[in-house]
Simulated assay, not measured.
Amino acid sequence: MRFLHNLGFFCILFLVSPLFTSSQEHVKGVSNHKEHIHKHMSRKLSFEIKLHGFLLWASMGFLTPVGLLAIRMSHRVQCRRRLRILFYVHALSEILSLLLSTAGAVMSFRNFNNSFNNRHQRIGVGLYGLIWLQALIGIVRPQRGSKGRSMWFLVHWMLGTAVSLLGVLNIYTGLVAYQEKTSKGIKFWTIVFTAEVCFITFFYLFQDKWVYIHKQGVSLGNESKGATTDQVVLPRDKQKEVAPAESC
């Protein structure tokens, strides 16, 4: 009787064990599938973070400074053709910067955790608003010589400066946020971006003084030659007529 009882027990165990094994394999398969999805999402999220950072660097770290330098250089240009070219460079750079920053902001709102609990996100929201405000002010530019031109220029200049400074600051905070989220080093990119900022700053300050330096050299070089030719050869009232026009 005991033999029959044990035989029945082993038969039931033999029948149930495949079900138990298949259940374990099913659970393991579900776990592996979830882990695969998690890895895939992590790779996707990492790519989106890098793309977001690249778009904002291209916008705030490159195109905005290029537009700022172009309009700064135009203050010393007398040729209308060169002045028009620099103005178009400024306008196109700022339009592309606006489009790229908008694409980066849309990516951030759609794909990232926007709890606004860190400095990068809070600065980013304020910066995005200032970018669009600056664009609208640029569109409604008054004609040169009109009554509100001076006030418009002051506001446009102040907003442009604020956007440039906040843009550079937010790139640094974005690198810090990237390091905190991915645990990856940012030392190399920080050094590269700092070198770029230093070069742009130096060029911004130097090009404003280049004309002055050039004039200093010209005036010192021509000081010993000048006066006798005009006084002896040409009458005083004819000097303006033969004065060479500035070439383009």
Results as ranks from 00 to 15, higher is better:
residue 209 K to S: 07
residue 209 K to A: 11
residue 209 K to E: 13
residue 210 W to L: 15
residue 210 W to F: 14
residue 210 W to H: 08
residue 210 W to M: 14
residue 211 V to P: 00
residue 211 V to E: 07
residue 212 Y to A: 14
residue 212 Y to D: 15
residue 213 I to G: 00
residue 214 H to I: 15
residue 215 K to F: 13
residue 215 K to G: 00
residue 215 K to D: 07
residue 215 K to T: 07
residue 216 Q to Y: 13
residue 216 Q to F: 15
residue 217 G to V: 03
residue 217 G to D: 01
residue 217 G to L: 01
residue 217 G to C: 01
residue 217 G to I: 01
residue 218 V to S: 04
residue 218 V to P: 00
residue 218 V to Y: 02
residue 218 V to T: 09
residue 218 V to F: 08
residue 219 S to A: 06
residue 219 S to P: 01
residue 219 S to Q: 03
residue 220 L to E: 10
residue 221 G to C: 02
residue 221 G to H: 04
residue 221 G to D: 01
residue 222 N to H: 10
residue 222 N to S: 11
residue 222 N to K: 08
residue 222 N to R: 03
residue 222 N to G: 02
residue 222 N to P: 00
residue 223 E to Y: 09
residue 223 E to I: 15
residue 223 E to R: 12
residue 224 S to K: 13
residue 224 S to R: 06
residue 224 S to C: 07
residue 226 G to N: 13
residue 226 G to A: 12
residue 227 A to L: 09
residue 227 A to H: 13
residue 227 A to R: 06
residue 227 A to W: 08
residue 227 A to P: 01
residue 227 A to M: 09
residue 228 T to R: 03
residue 228 T to M: 07
residue 229 T to S: 10
residue 229 T to W: 12
residue 229 T to N: 06
residue 229 T to V: 14
residue 230 D to T: 11
residue 231 Q to P: 02
residue 231 Q to L: 15
residue 231 Q to C: 10
residue 231 Q to G: 10
residue 231 Q to T: 08
residue 232 V to E: 02
residue 232 V to S: 09
residue 232 V to Y: 03
residue 232 V to P: 01
residue 232 V to K: 09
residue 233 V to W: 09
residue 233 V to G: 01
residue 234 L to N: 02
residue 234 L to T: 00
residue 234 L to A: 00
residue 234 L to F: 08
residue 235 P to R: 15
residue 235 P to A: 15
residue 235 P to G: 13
residue 235 P to C: 15
residue 236 R to W: 04
residue 236 R to N: 07
residue 236 R to A: 14
residue 237 D to F: 12
residue 237 D to A: 12
residue 237 D to W: 09
residue 238 K to A: 15
residue 238 K to C: 09
residue 239 Q to P: 00
residue 239 Q to I: 12
residue 242 V to Q: 03
residue 242 V to L: 08
residue 242 V to P: 01
